[in-house]
Amino acid sequence: MRLNSYSRREPNLSNSHKFFFLLLACALPLALLAALASGPVKLDLWQAITSGWHSDNSDAVILWQLRLPRAALALLVGAALGMGGAAMQGMLRNPLAEPALLGVSSGAALAAILLLYYGAVSGEVALPLLAILGALLAVGSVWLLAGRGASATRLVLAGVAINAFLSALMALALNYAPSMFAMQEIVFWLLGSLANRGWDQVLLALPFMLVGAVMLVLSRNYLRALSLGESTAASLGFSGRRYPLLVLFGIAFAVGSSVAVAGTIGFIGLVVPHLMRPLVGQDPGRLLWASALAGALLLLLADILVLNTVGVQELRIGAVTAFIGAPFFFWLIVSGRREMSL
């Protein structure tokens, strides 16, 4: 009852905002087509699509078994990171909060590294589960260290400290890992990659991402109330630990399972909520799904760039997102300074 009466006050989208969303929704299938058409082998795309899933034709195999799962993973991971970033910024009420920047992704990556390279536990499901646990511990540590509603400086300080510590542990773990390629693979875990991924990775991560998304969607009214301040949120009935924990678990599930299959891809969670916020009328609840949509699109576009870049080494997708994200970060700092001087 309380929730319904609250959600009735949701701001309505203006027509121009609706148009933007329509544009975004149309851009996704177009980007998907572009992703399916990108790759080192020239395909007859239409014939490959019509040949069907089970066809032995090499074009069809490339499309259905290689390109489609990779694009699907880019969409899912982008959506999870976008949504995770929006939730994190909403809960910490801080525009600088981002899963990769604040060590959540490193926590997940460290857990995945320990399992994959040292493998005390076997079984495929253990990988996303452990990565989620790592992400949870990291996000919990940042939250505890900085405190709720902490200033941007304190939060970023706590996040950077935890991120640096976890990254050092990742390097240490890979340094002593019993694999010839372990040191080289630090690059993967720090910058992420979608290369050589198949349906097995998509199916491994998907259920956990969905669980995370459901948790975050369930906490949308808490995030809305929290935007009015903690005491207002408490007076609206969102007191206790239940809701913050729901958000923390939601972020950990979404980001942890993404990192387990694609490594640490930064900046999506930072940039996307900022881009979407004006479009959703500053509504943190609506920002969740808008960020998911835009995150999916942004990561897919970044992957199209990776696929069309010719080079000896694969261009790392985390490097592409950093190229988009870092200038945005500069802009954020400069605009913040300008506001302070006013």
Binding site: Q65, L66, P178, S179, M180, F181, Q184, E185, F188, G198
Partner: peptide, 14 residues
């Protein structure tokens, strides 16, 4: 026998 992302291609279901 040892896990490495480097070996991911040969483990692909395709």
């Amino acid at each position: 026998q040892d896990f490495a992302i480097a070996h991911l291609a040969e483990r692909h279901p395709v």
